[in-house]
Design a protein around this nucleic acid. Structure first.
Length: 583
DNA sequence: GCCGTTTTCGGCCCGACTGTTTTCAGTCG
């Protein structure tokens, strides 16, 4: 039995949903999409849940009922789902790649297949370049142009994986290796350790007294689909998810140097090596060496450091540099001057200021979210459901949000002393920069988040003006996912972020770091600009289910990559201080 | 296909925008 990852289960359900949409079947597509979203956010592997408790346990997942649970069962047991295969036979196309093209939905994909035989990106590009698409009824010059543009974007961004969603698999590999006899250390280095938002591959280092056993375990892991290399110190495999993973066994005395070398970034390493050379030293993956006396092949190299990263940086007269900072953007100089920031820690959040419940498009109740937040050690959360403009989510209008506020009052009494639930909103910013709820309602809320979900294509000046107008609302506390990008799927809307940051400072509006792995919005470079401009930020999970609080980790990682400290992040502050700061 | 303060059947998925049309289909959030 091959173990299936949550990502592959989610992808399967999502594709089933899209196939059903091709056939104009109502409601079901949405049910499959919701289930896919829930599976993606799980901490535990769905395959493990099934092994542990069968269909019954799978049904506990919100959005998963008998029918979907049975399909997951079939997928886990056989690696295939009959229902899906039958759907795919009718329209045998590469849905995953085609639907990454912006503006292409299931209906268009079906039409392009039936009329032009398009089944993948290459075929789509050929048809578009030949001008065949524009001639189809329902399409035209502009759609063809848009498709070509979309192909370009899908191509340029499709090959990297989202860290937050890959990490459970990576950690499972680390844990598996750590259990192999002789292994004393197992850690993923590279962009994974630097917590980049996307990763191209995974580099894992192992210290072991029995390297062969670690290698043998590694190449026979259940997710491995092909073994690219299988040697004594290095092996390389491709996993079912499509990602390549390398494993290197390094000697104990070189562990620090190897970890440093394979963590990178390349720019950081090059700069560090240059400093070493200037001192008459040599730095490589085996250690930091003094070359004095060895010139001309005479004397021996003397080891200066190598077993730990701490001693390595210390040898350079530097403070330890956190992996998230290693991009050669000033961290080496700061480390030497002992002026590195004390980064916000992975356990520092006291609250979460963006969560959605089953009042709109979330899958858990307010109470369910509050309990999950408590279990995570959070002291406060804001409930920020969508507003009516986002009709698809059944967004709240003034009447329903007042009802919700009463419900929150009731729950706050129930949970007194344990957690505080703040009344909030993710209020839509309309085209002209006004908000989707009246000021009289906004005034009653503790946390007013505002965000853009429409008109992504406004010209830069107009979009910037729209956002600044929204932020200037006397009740607007936080600008949620400020640039609107979806990694690998949609570029940010065209907006002058320098101006937005400057305006945030002036208007006293907080900018959000949305922790969803596909958003991570603000990105690191803007986080750093906020830190420099002293514009406070909030790290929010954007949770749509109780399990999503675990995603906060990726928002914290992003903040750290942007050099943020606790004082930069308002939801590391105690509740009273945080509330006082909001408008 | 899921779910339950409208509760085991029947409601949910609405509205704006775009590009194609001249009244509408498809996409997106």
């Amino acid at each position: 039995m091959q173990k299936v990852s949550n990502q592959s289960v989610a992808e399967l359900l999502r594709e089933i949903g899209e196939y059903l949409e091709m056939q104009n079947i109502p409601f079901k597509p949405r049910a499959y999409q919701k289930a896919a979203l829930a599976i993606e956010g799980l901490e535990e592997e769905a395959a493990d849940i099934y092994q542990r408790g069968g269909i019954k346990a799978l049904k506990e997942i919100p959005g998963v009922g008998v029918s979907i649970a049975e399909k997951i069962e079939e997928f886990v047991r056989t690696g295939k789902v009959r229902y899906y295969e039958d759907l795919k036979k009718k329209t045998p196309v590469n849905l995953e790649s085609l639907s990454r093209v912006e503006g292409l939905g299931p209906k268009s994909i079906k039409k392009l297949y039936q009329k032009l035989g398009v089944s993948d990106l290459a075929g789509l590009e050929k048809a578009a370049k030949a001008g065949k698409i524009a001639k189809l009824t329902g399409f035209g010059e502009k759609s063809e142009e848009k498709i070509l543009k979309g192909i370009g974007f899908a191509k340029s961004s499709g090959s990297r994986f989202l860290l937050g969603y890959m990490m459970p698999q990576i950690r499972a590999i680390e844990a598996g290796l750590a259990r192999v006899a002789g292994v004393t250390k197992a850690i993923a280095a590279g962009s994974v350790r630097r917590r980049k938002e996307t990763i191209g591959d995974v580099d894992i280092l192992v210290v072991s007294a029995k390297p062969k056993e670690a290698m043998d375990y590694f190449v026979s892991m259940p997710d491995v689909v092909s073994v690219i290399a299988h040697g004594e110190t290095k092996s390389s495999v491709k996993l079912k998810s499509g990602i390549n993973v390398d494993l290197r066994v390094v000697p104990k005395e070189s562990y620090g140097a190897a970890l440093n070398y394979f963590t990178g970034s390349k720019d950081h390493n090059v700069a560090l090596r240059k400093i070493a050379v200037a001192k008459g030293w040599k730095l490589n993956e085996y250690g930091l060496f003094s070359l004095k006396g060895s010139r001309g092949g005479g004397g021996r190299e003397k080891v200066i450091a190598g077993a730990t990263e701490e001693e390595l940086y210390k040898a350079f007269g530097m403070d330890y540099i956190e992996p998230e900072l290693r991009e050669n953007t000033g961290e080496l100089e700061a480390a030497r001057a002992h002026q590195l920031p004390k980064l916000v820690g992975y356990g520092d959040l006291l609250g979460d200021l963006q969560t959605q419940t089953d009042w709109t498009d979330g899958s858990d109740s307010i109470e369910g979210l509050a309990k999950a937040a408590m279990a995570r050690g959070l002291r406060y959360i804001a409930i920020t459901d969508h507003t009516k403009r986002l009709a698809m989510t059944h967004g709240l209008d003034a009447v329903r949000i007042l009802k919700q506020m009463a419900e929150i009052d009731r729950l706050n009494k129930k949970f007194a002393g344990k957690i505080v639930i703040l009344k909030g909103t993710e209020c839509d910013i309309l085209k002209d920069g006004t908000l989707d709820l009246p000021d009289s309602v906004l005034a009653k809320l503790d946390v007013v988040g505002v965000s853009v979900h429409s008109h992504f294509n406004l010209p830069r000046a107009e979009q910037t003006e729209r956002l600044t107008r929204a932020m200037a609302n006397p009740h607007a506390d936080i600008l949620f996912h400020p640039t609107g990008r979806i990694i690998n799927r949609r570029p940010p809307y065209d907006v002058d972020m320098e101006a937005i940051i400057a305006h945030a400072k002036k208007a006293g509006t907080v900018l959000e770091i949305d922790a969803l792995p596909e958003r991570l919005d603000l990105k690191d470079e803007y986080v750093r600009k906020c830190v420099e401009a002293r514009v406070p930020m909030a790290i929010d999970s954007d949770a749509h289910a109780a399990a999503h609080f675990s995603l906060l980790e990726w928002g914290i990682a992003q903040a750290r990559r942007g050099w943020a400290t606790k004082s930069d992040i308002i939801n590391t502050w105690p509740l009273e201080k945080m509330k006082k700061f909001l408008k």
